[in-house]
C-alpha cells in the first residue's frame, strides 16, 4: 500500500475528516465486488446537504481503483473540459485510512431518478417552463 503514499496528505486521516464535521456522516456499503469501496457522505454542521464525499477502499484492489480514479479526475481538471466540468466531482484532498488512500471530492447535487419514477404525482416537483 505504500505505492499510494504520494497521493496522501501527510498525517490527515479519514477519522480527522469525520471529526471535523462533528460525526455528521452517512456511510454507504453497497459494493460487494473485489473493487470494494465504501462511500462516506459528509455534512458540515449547519448544512442540510453534503459538501464532501469520501471513497474508502476496503481491499488493495479497491485502493488501486481509488488511486486510478483520483488520477483520472486530476487529469480531467488539468485538461479544462469547459462547462461539462461542473458535472464531474473535483478532488478536494486525499486522506488515509488504515494505510490506504481515501479520495475526497466535492458532493455534486443530483437526484435519484429511479425513485422519482415511483413517486406519486402529488410528490413530484412541477416541471419548469
Amino acid at each position: 500500500m505504500t505505492e499510494h503514499a504520494s497521493f496522501i496528505v501527510a498525517g490527515l486521516t479519514l477519522a480527522d475528516l469525520i471529526d471535523s464535521v462533528g460525526g455528521r456522516v452517512a456511510g454507504l456499503a453497497m459494493s460487494k465486488d473485489s473493487n470494494a469501496k465504501l462511500t462516506i457522505i459528509l455534512f458540515p454542521p449547519g448544512q442540510d446537504r453534503p459538501v464532501y464525499v469520501a471513497k474508502v477502499p476496503t481491499t488493495d484492489v479497491g485502493a488501486r481503483r481509488v488511486a486510478q480514479e483520483a488520477a483520472l479526475l486530476g487529469d480531467l481538471e488539468l485538461r479544462g473540459i469547459g462547462p461539462i466540468g461542473e458535472t464531474i466531482p473535483h478532488i478536494v484532498t486525499m486522506v488515509e485510512h488504515l494505510g490506504r488512500p481515501v479520495l475526497v471530492t466535492n458532493a455534486l447535487p443530483g437526484r435519484n431518478m429511479f425513485a422519482d419514477g415511483r413517486r406519486s404525482r402529488s410528490d413530484r416537483e412541477p416541471l419548469r417552463s
Binding site: 456522516v25 454507504l28 455534512f43 448544512q47 443530483g110 435519484n112
Partner: peptide
C-alpha cells in the same frame, strides 16, 4: 449494515430522499 447514518435530521432526510432507492 448497508447504510449507517448519523441521527441528525438533515442527514436522515438526505439519505431517505436522495440515496435510498428501490433496487432495479
Amino acid at each position: 449494515p448497508k447504510v449507517v447514518a448519523s441521527s441528525h435530521p438533515e442527514v436522515l432526510r438526505y439519505v431517505s430522499d436522495k440515496v435510498l432507492t428501490v433496487p432495479p
